[in-house]
Amino acid sequence: MSPSDTSGSRWNDLDRPPLNAAALRRALVRPDGLWSEIDVVESTGSTNTDLVERAARGATDGTVLVAERQTAGRGRLERSWTAPARSGLFFSVLVRPGDGVPSEHWSWLPLLTGVATAAALSATANVDTALKWPNDLLVTVAGEERKAAGILAERYGDAVVVGVGLNVSLREDELPVPTAGSLALAGASVLDRETLLRAVLRSFEEWYGRWRAAGGDPAASGLQEAYASGCATLGRTVRAELPGGRDLVGEAVAVDGEGRLVLATGDGVQEPVAAGDIVHLRPAS
């Protein structure tokens, strides 16, 4: 077979081998566990979009959808998320928290996903990570904080779909923007995507179990404390770019019980921010 004959093969980039769906199922799906179904597709527009559609058709709690490539990956505020095929982990999970978790606590699910992902990467790949409120994961590349992952949560009825886009092996010339990073650029000791995905899903299962057992209470489950301890936004002067075009500048002093970022402004007022873009203006003191 000539090299041109392999151009469309899923094996044509041996530095970025495909995921083994059967091996992932053997490792993660068990009768007493969270994960019930794990599918890997070669390409799709957005795993979140696909899984929200499956939720509408009654997909089971604990469904995971992974794409080797996303052509229309979405972040917050409908921003796009693009990366070369098999250069990262692009996946979504569907959970149905049930009546035992009041819906007002569901806003913690993207923050829970951030904690679980950061903990898994630290333990498995020996890479320092930090959380930027509300849903970014930062790594350090050449002394600079860069975004290596984004998280997007969407609700459909009694289901929540949480998507993760994580840059694993992207090189500098492949980054979509200069402020992006990857595990490879951050010096991670492990870049095998199956190993990383197993670690992240196991970590999510552990944190989700704690959170559900506590009725979704972020303090009782330890989630609020864990998020605060790993959050690079706290202690910094930031600018919150709020919906409607309003900006708010202040020191990020806490993440409250609803998952909101609390800013102490120059006039002595503490104001919670539920949604918006956060720009880090100065490092934490």
Results as ranks from 00 to 15, higher is better:
7 S>P: 09
8 G>R: 11
8 G>D: 12
11 W>I: 09
13 D>G: 02
24 L>E: 09
36 S>N: 15
37 E>G: 05
44 T>H: 01
52 V>L: 14
53 E>S: 15
58 G>V: 05
62 G>E: 10
66 V>G: 06
75 G>L: 02
75 G>V: 01
75 G>N: 04
75 G>T: 01
78 E>D: 15
80 S>L: 12
84 P>E: 00
86 R>S: 04
88 G>K: 00
93 V>G: 07
99 D>C: 09
100 G>F: 07
102 P>R: 06
106 W>E: 08
108 W>Q: 13
109 L>C: 06
110 P>V: 03
110 P>Q: 10
112 L>R: 02
116 A>N: 06
117 T>I: 08
117 T>Y: 01
118 A>G: 08
119 A>P: 07
119 A>R: 11
143 G>L: 01
146 R>K: 14
148 A>H: 04
152 L>H: 07
153 A>G: 10
154 E>R: 07
155 R>V: 09
156 Y>M: 15
157 G>N: 12
167 N>T: 01
167 N>A: 11
180 A>I: 02
183 L>T: 03
185 L>Q: 10
193 R>E: 08
194 E>D: 15
196 L>P: 05
197 L>W: 01
200 V>S: 11
207 W>C: 15
209 G>Y: 08
216 G>P: 05
218 P>N: 04
229 S>C: 04
239 R>L: 15
246 R>M: 13
246 R>L: 11
247 D>F: 09
251 E>I: 12
256 D>M: 05
258 E>F: 10
265 T>G: 07
272 P>S: 10
283 P>W: 14
